[in-house]
């Protein structure tokens, strides 16, 4: 589903990704953990080319994203993304947030998009908020709307960039529950997270990143119980 080979990315003189190779297969849930500034968000953003990569290749669903001839917009319709700060459209209602891309990009008729949108709102437990504006929602509700918005495009892959980091602690669970449900339904997911509990419980594989490298990857039970690399050990001893 996703294949990255020797991906490099710099911001000016700062090299953030120093040759990342990674594969994600269909229906797999991969969690990326690591200290701040390790490059994990940048790595995620390279998967839908919100960041241009400077070296290596990124393949998504068979498309080579680094080939200039690839229609990036087409690929992005297959890759949903959920952001740390939600990035809901404040001038649109909750339902309009969800139906906008299907109507404008997929060219669905309005009633089909709304039907889909309402079904998704039901799924994330926010049926009563369809006509509310994002500003009137709590953080947890906003993030659930953001997930519904991404799902409305019926993507094959979902990317989560620290989806619970900006939330009050009591709202983390409602978002993680939606994500667990998605994982259970077989969605291919890549999740950058600080929620070790989630990574352990839901992840098929956990990747530990530090200073622009993938240091270690393994199934969660192994990685958390017996990390091999000393940097992984040091990180886990601080967060667990």
């Amino acid at each position: 589903m996703i294949k990255m080979t020797n991906v490099k990315k710099s911001f000016g003189a700062l090299e953030v990704l120093k040759g990342i190779s990674l594969q994600v297969t269909e229906k797999e849930v991969v969690c990326i953990i690591g200290p701040s500034g390790s490059g994990k968000s940048t790595l995620l953003r390279c998967i839908n080319l919100l960041e241009n990569v400077q070296g290596g290749h990124v393949f998504v669903d068979g498309y080579d994203l680094t080939n200039p001839k690839t229609d990036i917009n087409q690929v992005r319709t297959e890759v949903g993304m959920v952001f740390q700060h939600f990035n809901l459209f404040p001038h649109k209602t909750v339902l309009e947030n969800i139906t906008m891309a299907p109507i404008k990009v997929r060219k669905w008729p309005k009633d089909k998009a709304e039907e889909k949108g309402l079904a998704l709102l039901k799924k994330v437990g926010l049926s009563d908020k369809a006509n509310a504006y994002p500003d009137s929602l709590s953080g947890g509700q906003k993030q659930r709307v953001a997930i519904a918005r991404a799902l409305a495009m019926e993507p094959k892959i979902m990317l989560f960039d620290e989806p619970t980091s900006a939330l009050d602690p009591e709202m983390v669970k409602e978002v993680l529950d939606v994500m667990k449900q998605l994982a259970k339904e077989g969605m291919t997911m890549v999740v950058v997270t600080h929620e070790m509990g989630f990574a352990r419980e839901v992840g098929d594989r956990v990747i530990f990143m530090d200073e622009g490298y993938i240091i270690e990857e393994n199934v969660p039970s192994k990685l958390f119980a017996e990390p091999k690399h000393e940097r992984t050990q040091a990180f886990l001893s601080k967060v667990l």
């Binding site: 087409q74 992005r76 319709t77 890759v79 952001f83 700060h85 990035n87 809901l88 001038h91």
Partner: peptide
């Protein structure tokens, strides 16, 4: 306008022009 707005619109597959027209300019 927060640059997350453009990123969110682009991540949904909207073109730069569509994102400008429907998301950025109205705000």
């Amino acid at each position: 306008i927060d640059k997350g707005q453009m990123e969110a619109a682009r991540s949904l597959g909207m073109t730069h022009n569509q994102s400008m027209k429907y998301i950025i300019l109205p705000q």
